[in-house]
Design a protein around this nucleic acid. Structure first.
Lengths: 249, 249
DNA sequence: TTGAATTTGATTATTTTTGAGCAAAATAAA
DNA sequence: TTTATTTTGCTCAAAAATAATCAAATTCAA
């Protein structure tokens, strides 16, 4: 049996079991341990597996990339509903902004198969869309590790280069009286930046944020054009409609 | 039986079984082993199959695309040695460029605990440094999914805003006669951009790339100041020293 | 038919692959 | 830590596969 054949079998075994020992492989492939060791050596050099003492492991078990654990599992069903509504607004060929909020992140699931261009400052969004049809443009600048996103002056200037059909943004709080508010200046800055460069700005906002105000009030309601929410109580939504907002729910 | 008829049968057998041995084929086609070897040789040259020792395999079994993760694990120990040398050059407080090569990526392991600032266009580098002390600045622009990196005109302009103490870059090939060469215009552009904005440019280059030239020749040796390599043969390295390069090995 | 070109097979030399033994290194155990 | 065990890397030799060379057989075209 040739090296190539053994290689296929070893990879298959690793794929199934995750790891394997030299002895075990030698027995299964009916060859000597030294041959297996040599095989594992070259395969490790080719980056096909991770060599351990006494055996080998599947690569993905060793160097798994940072997983972007999103807080997006909170209120998952509400967020999904909001994103379903938002995604329905997106046309093939659109250029859209997506900011770094957890609700906006969920939108990824609904646009993976659309042929659109996404401009974002959110690393989880980039990661999520990496293996899809979507073209991605990443905002450059300093990375805010806490938010897993790019913020700052250079990021703002980067935004100015682009114009998009739609911007999808999140927010800390929204109220008819006080407009939009945020918990972070950075996020507020990015929200404003994207909204200014987009024809239409969609605010994705679950019911718990309606009629709340966070510490930083940063823009009036006129910054956005569409409010997408899971709130069903028309008494709460009516005032937003009255000031000219389109409301999707 | 003619070569053409044997060729059809061999291809059919490979299609069914995935692989076959010379002996086995000689028996089935009622001919000598040397003839089969000759057949397999020409067929492999024509790209119809993959030649193994003792036989042949179907191409689809062998030609799997190599991912970035695999590339970065190829020749891992050489790359580690190179990166250890490179990392020793980095001082606390430095601002450094890192490009999107797989050798440069390995440098991440050695700088995680340094208090430095990294400017990069490589997403794997960003992910790898996300949970470390390192401050990260991400080059903005269009994402090249194949290379998992940012490239293009906007990325170039982004680079111009920054100056760094050191740039750590990879390359497709390097030779005293032809200078630096690459397999992709995008990578070459980024390499030049980083080198121009850095006081000192370090080329991380494993021995296999020394004295090779890839299809795109994009800069002379004067672009870089330091060559970091695992090559130990001074006869090969001497010419680089003679033209004024500092060589670390 | 003749003769040139091609294909095939045999023989030998070279290369590649494999396995064994032993010292060095790494891991586990005390 | 020290000691014992396992695993590995190394060199060398045997075996297998291959390449190279040359001769025989076949094919093809006048």
């Amino acid at each position: 049996m040739s090296y190539q054949s053994r290689k296929q079998i070893i990879l298959k075994i690793l794929e199934e079991k995750g790891e394997a020992e030299v002895k075990e492989l030698a027995q299964q492939l009916d060859t000597s341990e030294i041959t297996i060791r040599r095989d594992l050596g070259t395969m490790a050099a080719d980056g096909l597996l991770f060599r351990t003492h006494g055996g080998a492991m599947k690569l993905s078990l060793v160097n798994q990339p940072v997983s972007f654990a999103q807080k997006s599992n909170m209120n998952a069903s509400q967020k999904e509903q909001i994103c379903r509504l938002a995604a329905a607004e997106i046309q093939e060929g659109d250029v859209i902004f997506m900011d770094c909020g957890s609700t906006v992140f969920k939108l990824c699931d609904f646009i993976k198969n659309k042929r659109i261009k996404v401009i974002t400052n959110s690393l989880p969004v980039v990661y999520e869309l990496m293996n899809t049809e979507v073209e991605i443009n990443l905002v450059g600048g300093e990375i805010d590790k806490e938010r897993q996103a790019v913020h700052g002056a250079v990021a703002q200037e980067h935004l100015l280069r682009y114009h998009a059909d739609k911007a999808f943004v999140g927010v800390g709080g929204i109220s008819v009286a006080n407009g939009l508010s945020a918990v972070s200046e950075k996020e507020a800055e990015m929200t404003v930046g994207m909204a200014r460069q987009a024809k239409t700005t969609y605010l994705l906002c679950d019911a718990s944020k309606l009629e709340t105000t966070k510490y930083l009030q940063f823009a009036s309601l006129s910054l956005i054009q569409v409010l997408v929410t899971d709130e069903t109580n028309d008494a709460i939504l009516a005032p937003y409609r009255e000031v000219g907002l389109r409301v999707l729910n």
